Amino acid sequence: PLITQQDIIEGCKKQMRGALQMNDFDERVVPTEGLDNVMVSESVKDHLQEMVDIEKARGVLFGLWGFDGSMRDRQGTTALFCGPPGVGKSRAAEALGFELGKPLKVVDFPQLLGKQSMKSNLTIVREVFKEARLMNAVLILDGHSLQTEGGEGKASIDDLRLLNLLVKEMTRFPGVVIMMLESNGSMDVFLSRIDKSLITGLKFVVEFGFPNLQSRKLFWKKIFPKSIPISDGKINFSLLAKSSDGFNFVQMGNALYRAAASAALRQENKRFLTMLDLTEAVKAERKRGESAIDRWVKAT
């Protein structure tokens, strides 16, 4: 038997998976796609590429050019990814890991907050950063939102202390660390909870928005399985992009799955996907995303 390039790639993935220890509040992710496959705006992609470039240059900057003296405590690439759910934040983080050849250590932020005592939280936070550093992983602090700490913009003293500790450890981390923030509006409330001296340590603040018309069209094309039978052999992706205005990537995927499920249940001679299936599924997904109050307001 011969060893192929695919065998080597699979071996590398298993090695990266095995390198990361597991806890009850984290998971490990081995990236499989780079920046070329990320559906985000050009400005966001520019930020992501700059993060990759800076991280790749770090060896020269701190190893040969003497930045380890003046910026020893700020060697890492720190970022805040913020935006609504389902707009590509996690995919972007995975793409960064792929471009840098590193696995991701994804830590569930709410579960960190849910520990029994502040003292144990402090210990766990430091252990998380230590482990990610030793394993050379991209560290992702996930699951945080403006409602995480008590809702309605309120936060306990312990939550504020832990948040500031996390940001402080981020600025000291000698690698890539990203805090994910789910937010549908202004970040002012979140930033007001962080010590101003720490905010400057975040080298990147990347705001993700809902996909535009062109991004939606590209995404519809990307998620269509090649083997799915289609009526008349073609799909109007421009129409789908227009009809899914305001959708995130998850909602578009849900609509396609809903349409395909309807088509799959038909008699065999009619078992193919039509544009009507898709447009009806988009309408159903949009309605599903609205609350009962939203629908009542529109009807009155």
Rank of each mutant, 00 (worst) to 15 (best):
T4M: 04
Q6T: 06
I8E: 10
E10V: 01
G11H: 02
G11A: 10
A19R: 11
Q21N: 08
M22G: 12
N23E: 11
R28K: 10
V30G: 04
V30H: 02
G34V: 00
G34I: 00
N37Q: 07
E42D: 15
K45L: 11
L48F: 00
M51L: 15
E55W: 12
K56S: 01
L61A: 10
F62K: 06
G63M: 09
L64W: 07
G69L: 07
G69W: 00
G69E: 09
R72P: 11
R74C: 10
L80I: 13
F81T: 13
G88A: 00
R91F: 00
A92R: 07
A92I: 09
G97K: 01
G97E: 01
E99V: 03
E99K: 02
G101S: 03
L104F: 00
K105W: 04
V106K: 05
F109H: 06
P110W: 08
L113P: 09
K115V: 15
K115N: 08
S117E: 09
M118T: 05
S120I: 15
N121L: 08
V128C: 03
E131V: 07
E131R: 03
R133D: 12
R133V: 05
I140V: 14
L146H: 09
T148V: 03
E149F: 15
G150D: 12
G150H: 08
D159N: 13
L160F: 01
R161C: 04
L163I: 08
L165S: 04
L165E: 15
L166C: 12
K168C: 09
K168R: 12
R172C: 05
F173Y: 12
P174S: 13
G175E: 13
G175T: 07
V176G: 00
V177E: 02
I178A: 00
I178G: 01
M179P: 05
M180R: 08
S183C: 14
N184M: 05
G185W: 00
G185N: 12
D188I: 02
V189E: 11
S192L: 03
I194H: 03
L202M: 15
L202V: 07
F208V: 12
G209C: 01
G209H: 03
G209D: 07
F210M: 15
N212W: 01
Q214C: 06
Q214K: 07
S215T: 15
L218R: 15
L218T: 14
L218Y: 06
W220I: 10
I223R: 04
F224G: 02
K226P: 11
S227G: 04
I228E: 03
I230E: 06
D232G: 05
S238L: 11
K242S: 09
F247H: 08
V250N: 10
Q251W: 02
Q251R: 13
N254L: 10
Y257C: 08
R258H: 11
A259T: 13
A264Q: 05
E268I: 13
N269C: 11
L273V: 05
L278D: 15
T279Y: 07
E280L: 07
E285D: 06
R286Y: 01
G289A: 02
E290F: 00
D294S: 13
A299C: 04
T300I: 07
